[in-house]
Write a protein that binds this DNA or RNA. Structure first.
Length: 421
RNA sequence: GUGGGUAUAGCUCAGCUGGCAGAGCACUGGAUUGUGGCUCCAGGUGUCGUGGGUUCAAAUCCCAUUACCCACCCCA
């Protein structure tokens, strides 16, 4: 048997309505905030990601699906969406079309990682980006949009974490101090931390080893080393969040895995997810457009993990049943099948969701089947009905049954809408 | 890349110190010649993940391997 490859999965009809729900709500809410969708290719030239994400990040160093096509060009299945979006923004000169562009995308991303709860090699993201303005108000607006989305989906038990990781003007000085202090404290840190001191001193702050926590807490905070513009930006963001009544946790130890972030970074975690508890994450990337060959442009955005949103949906929503037809046709015999087919076509054109059973089964079997489907009403057409040009319309909720001329079925169904379960 | 756990029917899982392959759910038919749900009866079609080994005999014990799950790591 051939199965889907490791880290990929089939999303079956039982689950897909949850995905539709998240996709529908996201699109509706993003639209309300003025975001426009664009669709991006699933693979790009490898260089785009190396330059955009940073070629020393884990993603680029060891997680990309890179291959050579028949023209010996190095291509990569996209591991994230922002680089592609910015490429499109530059390629089509969207910056010439007004000051601010608000764009969003959705689709599969690919990273070669060990699969785990909420982590797959092909996973799905919806991301939105605001290109143009530098305002903390934009950041608060985007976060507000996400709060509304999660509220609409019933996703609770979440926390918003914010941080500022400074900018090229202030971060290098902080990193130098941090590294120095970490080296001095190396004796009290775990082996992983010691290794990170040289490789990526920021990562030490993110260590979860309980024995390291006291030491890490004594390390300097980036927030104390921000330059004046960064500090002001951060304070204004907090003020805007306060105005919107959005609760946040400031976390100077939060670190992002992509090189392009500056100033504001944020993340929303969920208690419903397990170890991979990040529902979404994002931040500001003021230098990225320029770095990829565009004009100097401010950028702010996020990506949300669709797989994780679906996992975090509350039980009440998850338990929601699949959509069921409005009416089920149960024809008995060949003549009745033919009649029913025509009836089904007519009812569908009239807007009803109709299922017709083409299996030659007993009436009892038809009804049992309809009952399992949760269909509220069944149209029974047997020999007697067929001859008289009628059908028996039975409600599976009340058990009532009436004879209706086939030509009037549509009108009767419309007049007496049945309550679904 | 590193750990731990799991793998038996469509699904969820029992199956003990080796001895005929099981249950519940689901599905099909019947009890009711054309009326569902509740109840009762009947119905299994499975390379016991894969490959070796031990044994008279392996789902069970041993070795290897693959996949899945969870965690580290990293991130959405």
């Amino acid at each position: 048997m051939i199965t889907c490859v490791r880290g990929t999965r089939d999303i079956l009809p039982d689950e897909i309505h949850l995905w539709h729900l998240v996709e529908r709500e996201s699109a509706a809410i993003f639209d309300r905030y003025g975001f426009e969708e664009l669709r991006l290719p699933i693979f790009e030239v490898t260089e785009l990601f190396a330059r955009g994400i940073g070629d020393t990040t884990d993603i680029v160093e060891k997680e990309m699906y890179t291959f050579t096509d028949r023209n010996d060009q190095s291509l990569t299945l996209r591991p994230e969406g922002t680089a592609s979006l910015v490429r499109a923004y530059i390629q089509h000169q969207l910056y010439k079309d007004g000051g601010t562009r608000k764009l969003y995308y959705a689709g599969p991303m690919f990273r070669y990682e060990r699969p785990q709860k909420g982590r797959y090699r092909q996973f799905y993201q919806i991301g939105a980006e605001v290109l143009g303005p530098d305002s903390p108000g934009v950041e608060a607006e985007v976060i507000d949009m996400l709060m509304l989305l999660m509220d609409r989906l019933g996703i609770g038990d979440t926390r918003l974490w914010i941080n500022s990781i400074g900018c090229p003007a202030c971060r290098p000085a902080f990193l130098a101090v941090l590294q120095e202090r970490e080296q001095a404290a190396a004796g009290r840190l775990c082996a992983d931390c010691v290794r990170r001191i040289a490789a990526n001193p920021l990562r030490v702050l993110d260590c979860k080893n309980p024995d390291c926590q006291d030491t890490i807490n004594s390390l300097p905070s980036i927030l104390d080393y921000l330059c004046a513009p960064c500090r002001s930006h951060h304070e204004r963001l907090k003020k805007h969040l306060g105005l919107l009544g959005i609760a946040y946790h400031e976390n100077p130890r939060m670190v992002r895995g992509l090189d392009y972030y500056v100033k504001t970074t944020f993340e929303i975690t969920s208690g419903a997810l397990g170890a991979q508890n990040s529902l979404l994450g994002g931040g500001r990337y003021d230098g990225l457009v320029e770095q990829l060959g565009g004009p100097p442009t401010h950028g702010f955005g996020f990506a949300l993990g669709l797989d994780r949103f679906v996992l975090a949906l509350p039980e009440a929503v998850r338990a929601g049943s699949r959509p069921v037809p409005d009416v089920h046709l149960a024809p008995l015999g060949e003549t009745a099948q033919e009649l029913a087919q025509v009836v089904a076509a007519r009812l569908r054109r009239a807007g009803f969701a109709v299922s017709q059973d083409f299996q030659d089964r007993s009436l009892k079997s038809h009804l049992r089947h309809a009952n399992r489907l949760g269909v509220p009403r069944v149209v029974i057409i047997g020999d007697a009905e067929a001859e008289a040009g009628q059908a028996a319309l039975k409600s599976l909720i009340t058990g009532d049954q009436i004879l209706v001329p086939l030509t009037e079925l549509e009108a009767v169904l419309r007049q007496q809408p049945a309550e679904k379960e």
